[in-house]
Amino acid sequence: MRPSSLATLAGAFVLKQENISILNCLPFSPRHTTPEKFYIEACDEGADAVLAIDRVSNEMTLTGKKDVPPSAVTRPICGIMGTMRLVAGMYLIVITRKRNVGSLLGHSVWKAVDFDVISYKKTVLHLSEIQSQENKTFLSMINNVLTTDGFYFCTDYDLTHTLQRLSNTSPDFQEMSLLERADQRFVWNGNLLRELAAQPELHKFALPVVHGCILFTES
C-alpha cells in the first residue's frame, strides 16, 4: 500500500483574535468592538502559514505568523469544522477538544469531543427581536447536532475511502489534499467547508470529518 501523503496540517491549531477576548465573541454579546480578524495558526513545527478570516468582509486569505498582531488573544483549537451563515451572519465552527481512539496503519484517529460556534459579528443589534430569536433557535439546533456522538477525523489519512481503494490509486491522487480526494458522500462537514474548498491554497486548513462509529480491537 502506498503511504498517504500529509494532506492537511496536523496536530493542534491556535485561534487568535485581534484586540478582543474570546468571551466577547460568544453569540449575542452586545459589546461593540472595532473590526478585526480571526487568525488560525498551525502548531506544526516549521509551519508559517496562517489563515486570516476578515470578520467584516468574510474574506479568507493566507498569511504568515509575522502578520498576526502581538495583541491577539490566543486560544488552542483542534481543527476547523467549517463556516455557516445564519440570520445574524457568518459563524466559525471549530473543534475544541479531541480524544485519540486508536491508530490505523500508524495514523492516529481522533474523536471530536467538544466544539464551539463563534460569531463573526460582535453584536446582534442589527437584528429585529424576531430575527434574534430565530438566530438563537438555529444556534440551539446546531449545538444539539454537534453534541451527537460519533464525529471522527484523521489529519494524515483518508477515512472516507476503503483500504482497497487507497491501495489502487495514482501518485497524483496521493498528492491531493485530504479535502480534494475525499469521497464527499462520507464527509459530514462537506457543506461547512465550501468556503475553504473554493480556495485551493487554504485546503491545508480544511479538516474532513466523518460521522459514524469507529471501533478498534486488539488482535
Rank of each mutant, 00 (worst) to 15 (best):
T137A: 13
T137W: 08
T137S: 12
F138I: 09
F138T: 11
L139H: 07
S140W: 09
S140Y: 07
S140A: 11
S140K: 11
M141V: 11
I142Q: 03
I142G: 01
N143E: 14
N143K: 15
N143S: 13
N144S: 14
N144C: 10
N144L: 12
N144W: 13
L146G: 01
L146N: 00
L146T: 04
T147S: 11
T147L: 09
T147V: 10
T147G: 03
T148N: 08
D149C: 14
D149M: 13
D149A: 12
G150K: 12
G150R: 11
F151Y: 14
F151A: 03
F151M: 07
F151D: 00
F151S: 03
Y152P: 05
Y152L: 10
Y152D: 08
F153A: 01
C154K: 00
T155Q: 10
T155N: 12
D156F: 08
Y157A: 04
Y157M: 09
Y157W: 14
Y157I: 05
Y157G: 00
D158L: 03
L159K: 00
L159P: 00
L159N: 01
L159F: 03
T160N: 02
T160A: 04
H161S: 06
T162C: 04
L163N: 08
L163V: 08
Q164T: 10
Q164E: 15
Q164M: 08
Q164A: 14
L166V: 04
L166S: 03
L166Q: 04
S167G: 06
N168T: 07
N168D: 05
S170D: 15
P171G: 12
P171N: 12
D172G: 10
D172S: 14
D172C: 10
F173I: 02
F173T: 02
F173G: 00
Q174R: 15
Q174V: 13
E175D: 13
M176G: 05
M176R: 09
M176K: 14
S177I: 02
S177N: 09
L178Q: 06
L178P: 04
L179H: 00
L179V: 00
L179Y: 00
E180N: 07
E180Q: 15
E180C: 04
R181V: 00
R181G: 01
R181A: 01
A182T: 01
A182I: 01
D183G: 04
Q184R: 14
Q184K: 12
Q184M: 08
Q184E: 13
R185A: 11
R185Y: 08
R185S: 10
F186A: 07
